[in-house]
Design a binder for these strands. Structure first.
Lengths: 267, 267
DNA sequence: TACATGTGTCTTTTGTAAGAGACAATCCCG
DNA sequence: CGGGATTGTCTCTTACAAAAGACACATGTA
């Protein structure tokens, strides 16, 4: 709660579609909600609060949490009656990284980029229909943009979002993007048609730049990483001050595109 | 299956205690088994094989896998009908790292150690009563010992195992260590009493060295990391050639202990 | 002292999820 | 080709997990 994770609140809606976790929910779904809730809050939560947070009976959450703690997916946090993610989840996550060439190489490339350019660099992917920062490397500027790996942001707010949706049917895009997503943080409202046009041009150009969308001080440069099948599987992007010169921006875009292309060459 | 992950087979027994996943199992338990099974096999598995692997009805596994894939905990692997860990698990894993000072700093320290010494270095913890390599950094030797993060090895096979069990009741230790665990890879058999004596001396000394236990060519040096409460929460260890000189070994142990002590100072 | 709020563990009840099995559609190998 | 194995989807039944709710025990606070 300390430092403004306001965006995280966006990812509140649980799995599936149904917002209200009604009565007599399947145990597994409860668990999925619990995990999502912990992820959204980014800190250990008391079991009572957890029950409230996922809107489930206390007794149920007690039994489920016990199972999860026994299994190591959750751990009791320091003071005793709070839970948070456990070692097992970390291990499974590492398994995922190991089995996923793109992620492994992408993380490295992003780290390199931020070291070389000094700017914040991110690896982004679609995660069940939402834009997700999969890995980010802070850069060297004094006020670093919060490096919230796993943060989910509405697709229309970002340059990467435009690239990730390239090649999708209009209907699919409409489905992924809610009305709320089209409202920018500063209150401005995008038109769906404009957004879809952006997507088409971004896809054709092979890169995308957005200025002052998420906040007024930054520009976002992004380049697509393609899968073997030719689909956009991820993007790498740089977050730079909005007043970065045309020339430098052009240079960075070229760099970004080169690195993205290298990532696209599947191992 | 390609490169000898023979040890991984050790971690076969699922959660709880019961080896045989009998009929009418709780859905959540099935899921826990699925995750464990994937972790043990370290590769994408077909749904049919998965059902066989966790000894569950096909129809059940189909529905569970669908839920898990929808939730992003699992992903369909390349060719279409195999599943493996998904991005969500990676994100949760990163949340764990972020929320866990010891792990975050420990990983760094281990990376430093292996860079400085050129030897394989590992961060180890108890994970639901089993010894687990939480992070490892390969070192620069020609034949690198497999850097299998998440690998679980019987406690008696390792130096770290002796340190991690320091301070536990005899009964607890007996409970954690199965008969099989006392049989070394080369067929030799440890006596439980000898092992417990090792634990006591290791705990008193503040470090532990084992020679030729897991394999005939390596020595394992380990030092304990303490929690604020004074319990051994983790170990860092170095894997060096068994013929490393007394002098160098002593030097490395001193280094290891210093770093471990530094990690013990809670942030 | 009474009164509210939170926690952890029970027992009982009942709605439903896990399981058995049947099905068509592929796949694969002799 | 042809038959045995595998895959993905369906339906129906009942065993059992999720929920309700009562309990005992802490807290804090008027």
């Amino acid at each position: 709660m300390q430092d403004g994770y306001a965006l995280a609140a966006r990812s509140e809606a649980g799995p599936d579609e149904d917002k209200i976790a009604s009565s007599r929910e399947k145990g597994l779904n409860r668990v999925l909600h619990i995990l999502e809730f912990l992820h959204a809050n980014q800190r250990a939560i008391g079991i009572g609060d957890l029950a409230k947070g996922v809107n489930a009976p206390r007794s149920t959450i007690y039994t489920l949490v016990r199972s999860l703690v026994d299994a190591g997916l959750l751990e009791m946090a320091g003071d005793g009656n709070r839970v948070y993610f456990g070692k097992k989840l970390y291990l499974y996550g590492m398994d995922y990284v190991r089995g996923n060439d793109l992620l492994r190489r992408g993380r490295q490339e992003v780290d390199n980029l931020s070291r070389e350019t000094g700017e914040t660099s991110e690896l982004c992917m679609l995660q069940s229909g939402r834009y997700t920062i999969v890995h980010s490397s802070p850069g060297t500027r004094p006020f670093r943009i919060s490096s919230a790996t796993g943060l989910q942001i509405p697709l229309p707010w970002t340059a990467s979002g435009r690239l990730l949706l390239a090649g999708f049917e209009r209907a699919v895009i409409e489905d992924m993007v809610s009305e709320d997503d089209l409202v920018l943080p500063d209150g401005r409202r995008l038109l769906l048609d404009d957004f879809i046009e952006d997507i088409v041009t971004a896809g054709a150009a092979g890169y995308c730049v957005t200025s002052g969308l998420v906040d007024a001080y930054t520009k976002c440069l992004a380049a697509p990483v393609f899968s073997a099948a030719g689909k956009v599987e991820a993007t790498i992007c740089l977050v730079v001050p909005i007043d970065t010169s045309e020339e430098k921006t052009g240079h960075l875009i070229a760099l970004l595109r080169e690195r993205a292309a290298r990532l696209s060459i599947s191992g």
